[in-house]
Design a protein around this nucleic acid. Sequence first.
DNA 1: CCACAAAACTAATGCGCTTTAGTAGTCATT
DNA 2: AATGACTACTAAAGCGCATTAGTTTTGTGG
Lengths: 351, 351
Amino acid sequence: MDPVRRTPARRPTMKDIAQRAGVSESAVSFALNDRPGVSPATRDRVRRVAEQLGWRPSTAARALSGEGAATVGLVLARPAHTLGVESFFLQLVSGIQEVLARRHLGLLFQVVEDLGEECAIYRRWWAERRVDGLLVVDPRLDDPRPALLDELGLPAVVIGALAPGTPAHSGISTVWADDAGAMASIVDHLYGLGHRRILHIAGLPHLAHTQRRIRSLHAEAARRGLPDVHSISTDYSDTEGAEATRRALARPRPPTAIVYDNDVLAMAGLAVANERGLAVPGDLSLVAWDDSVLCRSAHPALTALVRDTSSFGRHAAEQLLSLLDGNPAREIQDDLPRLMARASTAPPPGS
Amino acid sequence: MDPVRRTPARRPTMKDIAQRAGVSESAVSFALNDRPGVSPATRDRVRRVAEQLGWRPSTAARALSGEGAATVGLVLARPAHTLGVESFFLQLVSGIQEVLARRHLGLLFQVVEDLGEECAIYRRWWAERRVDGLLVVDPRLDDPRPALLDELGLPAVVIGALAPGTPAHSGISTVWADDAGAMASIVDHLYGLGHRRILHIAGLPHLAHTQRRIRSLHAEAARRGLPDVHSISTDYSDTEGAEATRRALARPRPPTAIVYDNDVLAMAGLAVANERGLAVPGDLSLVAWDDSVLCRSAHPALTALVRDTSSFGRHAAEQLLSLLDGNPAREIQDDLPRLMARASTAPPPGS
DNA sequence: CCACAAAACTAATGCGCTTTAGTAGTCATT
DNA sequence: AATGACTACTAAAGCGCATTAGTTTTGTGG
């Protein structure tokens, strides 16, 4: 009978390498970390042995001797029912990973219900020495997280702009998309088609980018003298998107164009338009913020604000690496999203 | 001038607790880990001090002294362009987290391009002692991962069934959905409506559950004597979904009902039907595997196979915890998904 | 009041790595 | 040939925790 190998492959340590290579453990450490103190010949030998043994440094041991945990954290605070589809996050994460992988950094990921839990996780991770840095998403008005992370001394990159007036923190970079400019380009498009009554069905009101979009919309409306331009906040869910759309269309002078803050809301809006027998774009024009399969597969295909989310994630991760390398915090702006005109926008009825 | 506190809050260690409580470090360890060797009074005192100091055990130190990394891993091997929408994963992860959080286990998450990279990550994580266990998704025909993980001695739970005939591995549990039964319920529904020519636009052909669905479909067709029932594989993308639909509808005797393996494919199929002027469900019935906002917001709303993905994730995580606790591997079956009939299915034309 | 066990607590070791201090060996300089 | 300056290497300590072995205190029965 085959003797079953019960011991499941021991992990090699530096001691193993040292023995095989016939040198001390310190020499191994120097050799593998490009530190001076070993001859080129020894260095090569040690490296070969390490390679051959399939050695990898124990992150625990590394972390314990002050090298950091080789991990960055990302917490997503969204009530469970809200994280339905959202192409955004998986793409963002995929971009982030691409950059982190180059340095063999792990991504510790957690989904929680609310901001309070998120802060608790940060404290926990800090105390447990689990992460070297953080990626913070969904910045809010009056956001407690930058101050907290600064206090804990955890480098972080805020993805999406902080609200204006938020004090700068030394270890915190920001990578943001120009929501104001993007909103301006949408209004441009709709105004150019002849729309004068525009509704903006926004996302969560306490998010900083929601406010930026709302402000920009109103500024653009004011600039063009449009009185009938409003924003309504939702929780990003299809339910609230549909509800808000229904109420808006029931008004005496309904909007001729609606801008939705994400693809899910837009799809829900489209469904409501269909349900009420409104032709899109004949009777009503729709625009979605963020493109996705939903927008492309919808009938009619939705005009959408296309941005390269995965590249956004890459940039954020790059900034975090830069912080971890000891570079000063920066504030960088991502590419301006591009409005992709499709079949859901046209001149308003009677024009 | 305010003296700036440059030191960003030192993390308390057991030594700090020991000093404040006036006991040795060992006593602290005993007290905090419910080990015998300290009086109830001391235990309480130590705990209070720990609480007050906001102490949390350093995972690195814990891991180094043999306690495991307090982390489980999850690798998602999907080509970047494929992970478009997919409500599935975020929900799965959210369910997983719910269970892991109770034990304060972290989730190390990674997105890679292919299976080879995924295996490399497993080896790396193992060698780096980063994870205590793994959640494996997208089981395949002839899957190398169970054997690898068994060799490495990493407990794992495979989410979704392995292909039949895969040898059992001692440290590997399986949590699977009854794809065959689900497919049977879909065929039941369609056959009951009068459909005889059914097309199945499937996902990636090398995934085990894809094969299960295909087999079940053919078995059900054979049982009812339906000759014109086929499956076509895709990569789950809207592009291939649309393409496959187009080709199928161009055939001399096109199907009267199409079953799609996910919501994205189904939406793409719906768009193609619209583009060709086919009425859904009048001319063509559509069914989506997996429900989501897409299905609910589509026009007409799509009949879909609803399953509680987040509960699926919870069950998988629970199995992993059980494995980590030293319990033997198990194979458990999740609830049978439920077919939610909506507006996209009806009797075929001319019936 | 003593012997002796059990309870309460401390000291010491190890996990795998980095790093500082320390020890040979090599080479050039005067 | 002796001094110093490097180079190549080894020994040892420490990171924060768990754990084992060892020590002191307390409690019990005789």
